[in-house]
């Protein structure tokens, strides 16, 4: 266990930027520095193993000065964009700048990056002007997603996260899972579908289960005014531990399609006409009664849905067995 692990386990708060519990310790941002008795300089608590009898101070004036300096240096090369930044309210840099009273004006003449925002895929935007080089996206891609699609390119001040030969995500092996977006502590990576759809503090979070494959990933639906505006993976949940794939993370907006069926429909010749529930239900019941009367219950058959909830399938098989009196009920399971 590291000093940070022990502190968190015992309810002692230490700020972190590059640290994420799902990733190996990294020690890039140094915001988690603490003083260890006997050590010459402050140490990064995320990387140093805790030892028996170790005396650690997490909030000394020296530590606070160091943390503020780190944030101020980061701010010196960060756009003054909090007013319209998507991450406002959920941004670690913003949170710590406030906490440590860090002002950007401390280094007024610092050089500033001016990258073009990268909009090379349908699902998320990469604005590396906001990047703090914490490496969480890079390490998430390698250690969590297991794909190693992005890494740091160039050196020193020019260091930036890049795809191979900077050719863009679509040309790379990126699978657009967006797990990097979820791990980004600042506004460098942003889900496109969420842009200007609401502030983080306006969202209600609803926990649910992904509607795609059979893994059963746990999702947070970020809901504003009854509409899903973002989906993230639930950290520490089984089985996905915060991870999602491209469909689970970005494939939620089909429910708002204008093409949804909104009213019962009854065939008239080659077309359909809109009907009330009573009309459609009566017609269906009458027709099935007539068929059962004429041809017996086994002239009726049904295919249930492998995407809908258990309770729907239960009621459908109950309808076929207890009402129609046939076991002609099946669905697509063939594994």
């Amino acid at each position: 266990m590291t000093i940070l692990d022990v502190a968190r386990k015992n309810g002692v708060r230490i700020p972190t930027l590059c640290h994420e519990s799902a990733l190996e310790p990294y020690g890039a941002c140094r915001i988690c520095v603490v003083e260890v008795e006997g050590a010459r300089a402050p140490v990064a608590s995320c990387c140093v193993p805790a030892a028996q009898g170790m005396a650690v101070r997490t909030e000394t004036p020296r530590i606070q000065r160091a943390r503020r300096a780190i944030i101020e240096l980061l701010l010196s090369d960060h756009p003054e964009d909090c007013l319209s930044c998507e991450k406002a309210g959920a941004c670690s840099l913003q949170e710590y700048a406030y906490e440590f009273g860090a002002r950007k004006s401390r280094y007024p003449s610092a050089e500033k990056h001016n990258y073009a925002a990268l909009d090379d895929n349908p699902f998320y935007v990469r604005d590396y002007n906001k990047c703090i080089l914490c490496g969480r996206c890079v390490r998430t891609c390698a250690e969590v997603q297991g794909d190693c699609v992005i890494d740091f390119a160039h050196r020193g001040y020019d260091t930036a996260v890049s795809t191979p030969i900077n050719r863009g995500l679509i040309e790379s092996q990126c699978v657009l899972c967006g797990n990097c977006v979820q791990s980004c502590p600042v506004g460098a990576l942003t889900e496109k579908k969420s842009i200007r759809m609401g502030r983080s503090w306006e969202m209600e979070k609803v926990r649910t289960t992904c509607p795609y494959c059979g893994v059963g990933c746990q999702q947070w639906l970020h809901v504003k005014d009854g509409k899903i505006v973002k989906v993230t993976g639930v950290k520490n949940a089984e089985p996905n531990r915060g991870r999602l794939c491209v469909k689970g993370r970005f494939g939620y907006d089909f429910i708002y399609s204008e093409e949804r069926l909104k009213t019962p429909l009854i065939r008239e010749g080659d077309a359909f006409r809109e009907a009330t529930w009573d009309e459609a239900l009566d017609l269906t019941a009458d027709k099935i009664k007539e068929i059962i009367k004429k041809h017996g219950p086994d002239a009726v058959a049904g295919v249930s849905c492998a995407r809908s909830i258990n309770e729907d399938s239960y009621n459908m098989q109950k309808l076929f067995r207890s009402v129609f009196k046939t076991n002609n009920i099946d669905h697509c399971a063939r594994v």
């Binding site: 289960t209 992904c210 509607p211 795609y212 494959c213 059979g214 893994v215 059963g216 249930s304 849905c305 492998a306 995407r307 809908s308 909830i309 258990n310 399938s313 669905h331 697509c332 399971a333 594994v335």
Partner: peptide, 11 residues
């Protein structure tokens, strides 16, 4: 591995 979210459940 089931291909759809609730194939197991429908079974």
């Amino acid at each position: 591995l089931r291909g759809q979210n609730n194939v197991q459940g429908a079974c």
